[in-house]
Amino acid sequence: MATAALERPQPAVLDEGAAARVGRFLRRAPVHVVLVLLGLFWLIPTTGLFITSLLSASDAAQGGWWNFFAEPSSWTLENYRNMFDNEGIVDALLITAQVTLGSAILPILVASLAAYALAWIDFPGRDWLFLGVVGLLLVPIQMALIPIFSLYNRFDLFDTVPGLILFHTAFALPFAIFLLRNFFAGIPKDLMEAARIDGASELRLFFKVVLPLGLPAIASLAIFQVLFVWNDLLIGLVLAQNNQPIAPHLASQLRQFGSNLDVLAPASFFSAVIPLIVFASFQRYFVQGLLAGSVK
């Protein structure tokens, strides 16, 4: 049997000359170029929006925001100033903020309590209950809109902030409970037994040991919720009329006055930037949270 001589594996390149380095860069350049181009391409709409928001009403009406690059000095901040004077938009932003805050906090509160019970308290029917909760993930929002719409009308919840919060919370719970329950289940039992033997009651155990340890999952849940609720159009459109969050408000403005870009552009851009800021600030929790419950 002839054995081919094994090739010595090439050692990692440590000592390369400048020429070799340039060569390597050039070989990778096409990939980098493509990636940069793709990135820029995706940024086009946002850039367009941003630039339009900086143009005066007349300039914006002329169309072609790309002409901005020809005369960069014609930008103005008056659109933003006017935006903050525009009651409709400011109200919508405030409503969105309230709904988002409520829809982030309430699911976390409820889901964390439920998740702890499902993970660590042994009660009859627990597994079936968990299965049921996870099964609810399959219910599409659209199916619930009309029944909830009539329900809200009956209970005067239509067009209210609490009404929106409750709906968002309800649909956030299955995923939240699922995520948190798996994460809590991964907490070493010893840590909780140690708290018990130290005399901690169940409530203290929950708030002082379980919750702090579940912070990565909770933070990422909060981010999911903020991103989803802030940008939501459908639910706001159906379950609100005069007190609409920002997305449906801008959408209706677009329908009515499609030409007032000087109002729509800054509002849209501003509204788009907020969740981006949230995401950027809490990004590390987000990444941690993506793995939440998957690695013990």
Binding site: E193, A194, I197
Partner: peptide, 15 residues
């Protein structure tokens, strides 16, 4: 939690 015993776990279980 009512037995007032002290315990050291194999894994230490330090929070």
């Amino acid at each position: 939690e009512q037995r007032n015993l002290g315990i050291v776990f194999q894994s230490y279980a330090v929070w």
